[in-house]
Measured scan of single mutants.
Amino acid sequence: RELEAFAERFKQRRIKLGVTQADVGSALANLKIPGVGSLSQSTICRFESLTLSHNNMIALKPILQAWLEEAEGAQREKMNKP
């Protein structure tokens, strides 16, 4: 249940930020998480549509959570600048 809720929230917030699935995939490489490079657009799509295996969903959740927090933080900074 929690994974499904996160996937839905992730998709809504990604769209609100105006970021494509492909952008998310390539931006993950910038997070410098050990062992994590970029991901394909189709992987992000399959995460959002819950068609990845349960284990893959569990593995990707903290990575996508980290990206989302960073992206939303950058958005807030941009909006707070005069």
Rank of each mutant, 00 (worst) to 15 (best):
A22N: 15
S42Q: 07
V24H: 01
R46C: 07
E77Q: 11
E4L: 06
V19M: 15
I15W: 04
I15Q: 11
N55K: 10
I44P: 00
L64V: 03
L68V: 08
M57A: 06
E72D: 04
S40F: 04
D23G: 08
A7T: 06
I33N: 05
L64W: 00
K11G: 02
A7S: 05
R14S: 00
S42W: 05
H54I: 15
F10Y: 02
A7R: 02
F47G: 00
S40M: 03
V19N: 01
E77T: 08
E8N: 15
E48D: 00
Q65I: 07
K32Q: 11
L3K: 02
S53N: 07
L68Y: 04
R46K: 12
A74I: 12
K81Q: 10
L17T: 01
L39T: 06
S38R: 14
S49K: 09
L60H: 03
P34I: 05
R76F: 10
Q65P: 00
E48N: 00
T43H: 15
S38C: 05
E4R: 08
G73I: 15
F10S: 00
K78M: 15
L31H: 11
A59F: 12
W67L: 02
H54G: 09
A5P: 02
G25E: 14
A5G: 10
A29G: 15
D23I: 02
Q21T: 08
L64G: 01
L28I: 11
W67S: 01
L60G: 01
L31Y: 14
G25L: 10
Q21F: 08
A74Y: 12
M79D: 11
D23C: 05
R76I: 10
K81E: 15
S38G: 05
M79C: 10
G37H: 09
V36C: 05
G18L: 01
Q65R: 06
P62H: 01
M57Q: 05
P82M: 12
S26L: 11
K61R: 09
K16Q: 13
K81C: 15
G25R: 07
G73N: 12
H54W: 11
C45F: 07
E4P: 03
I44K: 00
E8L: 13
S53T: 05
A7Y: 01
V24D: 01
K81S: 11
E4Q: 10
K61C: 11
V36M: 05
R76N: 13
E77P: 08
D23Q: 13
K61A: 08
L31K: 14
G25F: 07
L50Y: 12
E8V: 13
L50P: 00
K78I: 10
E72A: 04
L39V: 12
I58E: 11
K32V: 11
F6D: 02
P62C: 03
A66V: 07
L28A: 03
S42A: 13
S40K: 08
Q21P: 09
Q21M: 07
E72R: 03
S40N: 09
S40W: 03
S49H: 09
Q41K: 12
N55V: 09
S53A: 10
T20I: 01
E70C: 07
K61W: 08
I44Y: 00
N30W: 06
L31G: 05
R14M: 00
R13T: 12
K32S: 15
I15K: 13
L17E: 01
N80R: 10
I58R: 15
K61Q: 13
A71V: 13
A66F: 07
S38M: 15
V19F: 15
A59E: 10
K32N: 08
S42T: 13
R46F: 05
S53I: 05
A22Q: 15
D23A: 11
S42L: 07
M79E: 14
V19K: 12
P34D: 11
K16M: 14
G18D: 03
L31I: 10
Q65K: 09
M57C: 04
E48G: 00
A74M: 11
L28V: 08
N80F: 09
R76K: 12
T20W: 00
S40G: 09
Q12S: 09
C45L: 08
E72M: 03
Q21H: 12
V36I: 13
I33K: 05
P62V: 02
T43I: 14
R13D: 04
T43Y: 04
E48R: 00
Q41T: 09
L50F: 14
S42V: 11
R1A: 06
E2P: 02
R9N: 13
F6A: 03
K78S: 08
G25D: 14
G37S: 09
T43P: 02
R1S: 10
I15D: 05
E48V: 00
E77M: 13
F10N: 01
E2A: 04
N55H: 09
L50H: 14
Q41A: 14
F6M: 03
L60N: 05
Q75P: 08
R14K: 00
F47A: 00
N30G: 11
D23E: 13
W67Y: 05
M79A: 12
